[in-house]
Amino acid sequence: MTFNNILFEEDNGIATITINRPNKLNALNKETIAELHKAVKLAEEDGDIKVIIITGSGEKAFVAGADISEFANFSVEEGTKLAANGHKVLFDFIENLSKPVIAAVNGFALGGGLELAMACHFRLASDNAKMGLPEVSLGVIPGYGGTQRLPQLIGKGRAMEMIMTAGMIDANKALSFGLVNYVTTQDELLPFCEKIAAKICNNSPVAISSAIQAVNSNFKSGVNGYDVEIKEFGKCFGTADFTEGTTAFLEKRKANFIGE
């Protein structure tokens, strides 16, 4: 599949999706969002791919925000539709994906860029990264999940401050807040992500999928996360991966999971 705004690579079970609009600091426009959806879906449907890494091209930005020129003249109805479609096509889609998605934040992650990183299952950042939700400085609020995911990750008070001041935090502050898991140099960022991804690849894909569903359920209104955990735990007992994992443990050998 050919893309105009992203690069797609696969190696050793790891798909790396690079947003490639360096002249626009990798800003998310409608076409890029659609291409990201297609690329992530392609990776999810490829049985050889176990983990997905999303990053930005160049040394300045992961994603420096949404492409404001596309929606500056939108009406109320158009703005509402823009947010709803974004949630469905990309941000909720990534969050609920059956395969782990890691954000490699290699510079500015602002507005929709930070929202994209937060939709991923966890984040690593280069030491030059800057993160923020500056939407209120434009007379609007985050519309791709920022008002929901940021408080979940760093707490209500800190999220309120970041959103209301429209300010940025650096990588070390993001680490102290729990917004990112690790901070590395820019050169080390992708290799470190790949190292973590390789560890994930050693484990059962079906169990990982169940774990994603169980963890996510705790943050969904009206859903009892404990009930989802019990259900997903039970489902694992009917999988070939469970048979292989337990047999390998008892036989003192490395498991060879097939993802079924």
Results as ranks from 00 to 15, higher is better:
Val63Ile: 13
Leu114Asn: 09
Asn4Thr: 15
Tyr182Val: 13
Phe249Ile: 09
Thr2Ser: 12
Ile208Asp: 01
Leu114Thr: 03
Ser221Ile: 13
Glu229His: 05
Phe177Cys: 14
Leu114Gln: 03
Ala197Asp: 05
Asn23Trp: 03
Leu138Lys: 11
Leu116His: 03
Glu9Tyr: 12
Leu153Ala: 14
Pro22Trp: 06
Asp46Trp: 06
Thr246Cys: 05
Cys236Phe: 12
Leu150Tyr: 01
Asn73Ala: 10
Asn106Pro: 11
Asp241Leu: 08
Thr246Ala: 07
Ile17Val: 13
Glu251Phe: 09
Leu90Gln: 01
Gly178Thr: 10
Ile212Lys: 09
Ala248Phe: 06
Ile154Val: 15
Glu115Phe: 00
Ser98Asp: 08
Gly65Gln: 05
Ile49Ser: 01
Ile154Pro: 00
Leu97Gly: 13
Gly47Ala: 05
Ala83Tyr: 01
Asn203Tyr: 04
Ala64Lys: 06
Ala43Met: 04
Gly145Ile: 02
Met164Pro: 01
Asn26Met: 02
Gly13Cys: 09
Met131Glu: 10
Met131His: 05
Asn216Trp: 04
Gly65Pro: 07
Ser209Asn: 13
Gly157Arg: 11
Leu133Arg: 00
Leu90Tyr: 04
Leu133Ser: 03
Arg149Tyr: 01
Lys235Cys: 03
Ala197Gly: 15
Ala84Lys: 11
Cys120Gly: 05
His37Glu: 15
Asn181Lys: 14
Arg123Gln: 11
Arg123Cys: 06
Met168Ile: 08
Lys81Val: 09
Gly238Asp: 14
Ile258Asp: 06
Ile169Asp: 00
Lys173Asp: 04
Ser57Pro: 03
Glu244Arg: 11
Pro205Gln: 07
Thr2Ile: 13
Gly145Gln: 05
Ala83Phe: 11
Glu45Gln: 15
Phe93Gly: 06
Asn20Ser: 15
Gly65Trp: 00
